[in-house]
Design a protein around this nucleic acid. Structure first.
Lengths: 195, 195
DNA sequence: ACCTGAACACCGTTCAAGT
DNA sequence: ACCTGAACACCGTTCAAGT
């Protein structure tokens, strides 16, 4: 007589993410997550192949959540007529808001945890598409370099902020808005910075 | 009769950094580093307080090395008359070169490993000063927002590149140069992007 | 089909004991 | 003053055994 399933993917994800935010990424262990969902450690290997998969679940969940947040702010994917500058600004601020409320999950988004396995998660695919569409609407030509520049800056800024890397005082909010305006202004100037 | 010291700080740092680059950050354990320098694990606690300190040694070493690289490229700290655009460009490229040759050490530079303890290492202090001086020479006004923008972008770009986050094809070198030109051009335009 | 206890090779860390 | 073995509480992972 088969044992009934007591662990759902959603419960696993929620438990892993809660532990990550409460006690740090290193505390997301097979043992801790198993205890949080009410089974013994070995049982978790019926649902994930390695400890690393727990971090991937967290990253995928954060990607889905961020894409939903952005959709809420900039309207539906292709039919939007919103100001392209406002869209890019909203995307960057949504990422920083996620980083403020879920710093550990946000730090995993572009840090290899979500990237190692095939295929990419639905959340990451959707997020990538949303960002590329927004960059395409704001600037002519190949959106890839601009999208990579904006993502790298936002990821770097938020991980540094959460790690406590900005130790020289000053206004960190102002530094974020300065970087955001600098990049979006340059992108929408309509010409590449070099001929 | 006291036992002679068999472990130097330099040997500890070199061993930890070599293990990090060869086998990854997670492989930098008290046991592995102790074995690499020829003592038993408990002896390492005469030289570091926690495993985390091993990562700090790596980060500090990388900071010192990067500051030396930059000094070699842009000349001595305050007396330089070099083109300020060329200085910022050289700094960013030196960081990416470090990230290519020592990806694990570079990823620790702004990721909390070097940031937790007081006081900051000489290498981090020197690196911060070098960057701020270069930004000051290139743009009028408060250098902090521009320095934070450039650092966040470079850190984000290099960690994403090394993590394999750029999966959509295209030319990653081109994306780096695009971001670098975009930022440096905006900084040296001599006016803030918003009034 | 899923869950469990037992087992293995690790790890960080502490501490009394050596020299 | 530094190094060591022994010990403790952990961890990831495997596997035969339960239901």
């Amino acid at each position: 007589m088969p044992a009934p399933q007591r662990v759902t993917r959603a419960a696993l994800t929620a438990a892993a993410r809660a532990i990550a935010e409460r006690d740090g990424i290193d505390a997301v262990t097979i043992s801790a997550v198993a205890a949080a969902v009410g089974v013994r450690a070995p049982s978790l290997y019926k649902h994930v192949a390695h400890r690393h998969d727990l971090l991937r679940l967290i990253a995928d969940d954060a990607a889905r959540e961020l894409d939903e947040d952005i959709m809420m702010l900039v309207g539906s994917a292709s039919g939007s007529r919103a100001d392209p500058v406002a869209s890019l600004t909203a995307i960057a601020r949504a990422f920083r808001a996620l980083s403020a409320r879920s710093p550990r999950a946000a730090s995993l988004l572009f840090s290899g945890a979500a990237l190692s396995a095939e295929p990419q998660s639905d959340g990451m695919v959707a997020l990538t598409r949303t960002l590329l569409d927004a960059v395409r609407a704001a600037a002519p030509g190949d959106p890839l370099p601009a999208a990579r520049t904006l993502t790298a800056w936002a990821h770097g800024f938020c991980t540094m902020e959460q790690a406590g890397a900005f130790q020289l005082g000053g206004d960190v909010d102002e530094a974020f808005e300065f970087g955001l305006t600098t990049l979006v202004t340059a992108f929408t100037a309509g010409r590449s910075p070099r001929r």
